[in-house]
Design a protein around this nucleic acid. Structure first.
Lengths: 140, 140
DNA sequence: TGCTAATCAACAAGTCGTGCTAACTAACAG
DNA sequence: CTGTTAGTTAGCACGACTTGTTGATTAGCA
């Protein structure tokens, strides 16, 4: 993801106003590897800016997503998560605690076979599920 | 997926009753490559058995899923889809028409790198998105 | 035959996300 | 500095998807 300063510039370019709410969200996302949902991001934001609305968080995340500045990841576990890492990467998910980490897979593009002719692949999403080291340790 | 007859046997083993509704769903799923949602399966079922309830379809699908007889696939496109193919396979999805096909990837297990130590991978899900041949043809 | 699970209808609730309105605030251009 | 206009907020609602509940009826299976 771009730095908060770069995002400010991009927003201005697009004719969007640079509000304190948006700047706060830029800062909270910058370097964030927690893959937060809109809700969890809202909770953190509200601590620093009481009165900010969940609606605004949703909206700013949608804008960032539409601009390609954050990735929109849906792990089928309820809420959509946001990832400021927009590299071509994938995810590992602990099925016990739900933690998500970014990983890189170098074999892509992958070859597949099946009853699919002439399909043009635009993107590939890989999700590894299992148990993280912490959870394995706790259950042992 | 097992044949309807095998599923009948498995249900009886588990102490579940073999009702006409369940048998209908077994038949509708057998060899089904359409990756239906509960809703679409319900619509087809209702044609053959007016009066069957959506609730029952949901419940039977949950039972089959819990028994490992169908796969539960969430492509983040609204409703969950069900796949009677429980092989170790993956999916291609047309972003235009939404059609889903099963594919096999032979490079699994995949290697990944990232800031993840000691993670035990139990399963890998790969989703290829793009445009199917029909949609490519129509838009050309 | 009888116990009990299954089904059904009808209604509700929960989660996630968005739409709408109306009023207030504030960013940015001039 | 001022005015325009976008943004924010609260509050309410809805929509999609899925599950819970209740109470009555049906029917599978021992």
């Amino acid at each position: 993801m771009k730095t908060p300063e770069e995002l400010v510039a991009r927003f201005r370019e697009q004719g969007y106003k640079v509000t304190p709410q948006r700047q706060l969200i830029f800062r909270l996302l910058n370097g964030n590897t927690a893959h937060p949902t809109a809700e969890t991001l809202y909770e953190v934001a509200a601590q620093q800016m009481p009165g900010i609305s969940l609606r605004t968080v949703y909206q700013t995340l949608s804008e960032l997503s539409a601009m390609g500045e954050v990735q929109h990841i849906d792990l089928g576990s309820g809420a959509v998560r946001f990832d400021p890492n927009v590299d071509d990467h994938h995810h590992v998910v602990c099925s016990t605690c739900g933690v998500v980490h970014d990983v890189y897979v170098n074999q892509t593009p992958l070859q597949f076979e099946g009853d699919v002719e002439g399909f043009a692949v635009h993107s590939t999403r890989i999700v590894f599920s299992g148990e993280c080291a912490q959870c394995a340790h706790l259950s042992a």
